[in-house]
């Protein structure tokens, strides 16, 4: 499909000899989608995310980002992607601005554009006064804001975010949701695993539920949810699966 940003086809990943973390998973994320990926601890969400980010090899299946294979063209895929892990352990020995410059250089963001975007997001997240400090001095929330700013610097087509709202203050979380919506309106897509069903329910237009590495429900949130709350659906789906 033309507007497909991320296509995961029959992804399988095994740790060690037997532990299947992800089992024959297929998902499609289109331009404009905010796609929530829901599951219990150890369900395979982060493994999937890392495989999509190109930092974890997988056993079989294929992952395409805007039609390019993560396996065959990793650098092109990474250039269109931004990945923020659940606990962004940024380089403590760099200052915030050095980090952003580093990310800007590697993604080839021009000087003027970079300056404008840094200014915009630093203001939005109220961190102009801290960008000259070492990252080691930042709180968890500050690191998260810096990671998000770095991720937005090159306007990625696909954002991969692992629990993006953890550690953010309510204002920053609100503004980040706004940024996500603006990005999706402009044709990008967001794919994020979360445990917080409330966030998924309010923010996402599509969701997938994963258990034991297998996809057990997916699609438009309205279709998956029906008349019930997402929490109820999630519990029901898990229980039915166990039976």
């Amino acid at each position: 499909m033309e507007n497909t940003i991320l296509r995961i086809e029959h992804l399988t990943k095994t740790y060690g000899k037997t532990k299947k973390a992800v089992d024959d998973l297929s998902i499609e994320v289109c331009a404009g989608d905010i796609y929530g990926f829901i599951g219990q601890n150890g369900a395979g969400k982060t493994t999937t995310l890392r495989s999509v980010a190109g930092i974890l090899p997988f056993d079989s299946g294929e992952i395409y980002i805007v039609g390019k294979s993560v396996r065959d063209e990793p650098v092109s895929c990474k250039a269109m992607t931004a990945y923020i892990p659940d606990n962004p352990d940024l380089y403590d020995y760099l200052t915030g601005i050095q980090y952003l410059n580093f990310i800007g250089d590697v993604f080839g963001v021009a000087d003027s554009v970079r300056r404008e975007r840094i200014e915009k997001y630093a203001q939005m997240f109220r961190m102009q006064g801290d960008l000259g400090s070492l990252i080691g001095a930042y709180s968890h929330g500050m690191k998260q804001k810096l990671a998000v700013t770095g991720a937005l610097l090159h306007e990625p087509k696909l954002m991969l975010l692992d629990e993006p709202f953890v550690g953010l203050d309510p204002e920053a979380a609100f503004k980040l949701k706004q940024v996500f919506r603006e990005m999706c309106d402009a044709g990008s897509a967001i794919f994020f695993p979360t445990h917080v069903l409330d966030v998924a329910e309010k923010l996402c237009n599509k969701i997938a539920i994963i258990k034991g590495g297998k996809l057990i429900a997916h699609g438009d949130i309205a279709a998956v949810r029906g008349d019930e709350s997402l929490e109820n659906v999630f519990m029901e789906v898990l229980e039915n699966r166990e039976k």
Binding site: T95, L100, R114, G129, G132
Partner: peptide
């Protein structure tokens, strides 16, 4: 680590 400090626009330069 060091105390809070702001950045200057001259700090933004590409390579």
């Amino acid at each position: 680590k060091g105390a809070r400090s702001a950045y200057h626009s001259k700090d933004v330069r590409s390579t």
